[in-house]
C-alpha cells in the first residue's frame, strides 16, 4: 500500500511538473463548457438537468466524446515514457511488485482526471441556482463519468505498455475507445439492426461504454453497469501486467 502511494505521489508530481495535467484540465473545462453552453444551449432549453434534455445531450452526455481524445493524452506517457527513459529497469528492480507500480501509475492518472471533473462544480452550482434539478442524478452522472474515464485510462495504460512511442500509444488507445463508444452509439446500433439479429446487436452494445454510461447518468446506479466499468479496468490492467512481463522476458 505504501509503495503504491509512493508511486502515485511521484506520478502526480510528474503530471504537474510538466504541463500535461494543466493542459488537460484547462482544455477539458473549456470544451465541457463549450458543449454544454454553446452546442447544447444550456440557457435556452430551460431544463434543469445535466444529462439529457429533450433536444440533445447535456453536460455529461458529451463526456464520452471529450474523454475519447483527452484521456489517452493524459495516460499515454504512463509506461511508454518509462520504457523510453529506461527508468522501467530502475522501477522494476526496486523491492516492489509490478502490480504496485501498475496501480500506482493508474491511480495517479485517474486522480488528474478526477481533479478536472471536480473543477466542473460551477456547472452544478449554476443548474441549482437556476432551477431544481435532481441532485441524485447529477451525483450519479459524476460517478459514471469518473468510472468511464477510468475505463479509458486503463485502455491507455495497456496501449502505453506496448510501445515506447507515446503517439502510437495515444492512437491505439483512441481507436479502442472509439470502438467501445460506437458499439452502443444509437446511430450505429440503428444501422446494425437492419441486417443483424437483435440479440447480436444487444450483445455488441453490451460491450459499449455508451450503454452503461447512459443508464448511470440517468441516475440509475445499477450494479451491472458499475461491474462493467470495473471489469474493463481489471481486464486492461491485467493485460498491462502481462505485456510488461512479456516485454521483460524478451
Amino acid at each position: 500500500m505504501g509503495n503504491i502511494w509512493t508511486i502515485t505521489k511521484r506520478e502526480l508530481r510528474g503530471y504537474f511538473a510538466s504541463p500535461v495535467a494543466f493542459v488537460f484540465i484547462v482544455i477539458f473545462l473549456l470544451l465541457a463548457g463549450f458543449f454544454t453552453f454553446m452546442i447544447a444551449q444550456f440557457f435556452k432549453v430551460g431544463q434543469a438537468t445535466l444529462s439529457q434534455t429533450s433536444y440533445s445531450p447535456m453536460f455529461f452526455g458529451w463526456h464520452p466524446w471529450l474523454y475519447l481524445f483527452l484521456v489517452p493524452a493524459v495516460g499515454m506517457r504512463m509506461w511508454s515514457e518509462e520504457r523510453r527513459l529506461g527508468t522501467i529497469e530502475l522501477l522494476l528492480t526496486m523491492p516492489i511488485t509490478p502490480w504496485q507500480a501498475i496501480l500506482g501509475k493508474f491511480l495517479a492518472s485517474w486522480a488528474v482526471v478526477a481533479i478536472a471533473l471536480a473543477l466542473t462544480f460551477p456547472v452544478w452550482i449554476t443548474v441549482n441556482y437556476l432551477g431544481n434539478p435532481d441532485n441524485g442524478v447529477i451525483v450519479g452522472g459524476y460517478i459514471g463519468s469518473l468510472l468511464m474515464a477510468g475505463a479509458y485510462l486503463s485502455i491507455t495504460a495497456m496501449t502505453s505498455a506496448m510501445t515506447r512511442n507515446q503517439v502510437v500509444a495515444f492512437i491505439v488507445a483512441v481507436v479502442i475507445s472509439l470502438f467501445l463508444i460506437l458499439a452502443g452509439f444509437p446511430p450505429v446500433t440503428d444501422m446494425l439492426v437492419t441486417w443483424a439479429q437483435p440479440w447480436i446487436v444487444d450483445l455488441i452494445a453490451a460491450f459499449s461504454v455508451m450503454t452503461h454510461f447512459e443508464s448511470i447518468q440517468k441516475g440509475v446506479l445499477d450494479s451491472r453497469d458499475i461491474l462493467y466499468f470495473v471489469s474493463v479496468m481489471a481486464f486492461c490492467l491485467f493485460t498491462t501486467s502481462t505485456i510488461i512481463r512479456a516485454h521483460r522476458a524478451g
Binding site: R13, G14, A17, L85, G86, T87
Partner: peptide
C-alpha cells in the same frame, strides 16, 4: 524476489532517471 531485491543496489546501463524530478 522482494527480499532479494532489498539487498541489491543497481545502476543500470546508461544510468536512467526520471527527468522531470
Amino acid at each position: 524476489p522482494l527480499p532479494a531485491k532489498r539487498l541489491i543496489g543497481y545502476l543500470p546501463e546508461n544510468a536512467p532517471s526520471y527527468t522531470d524530478m
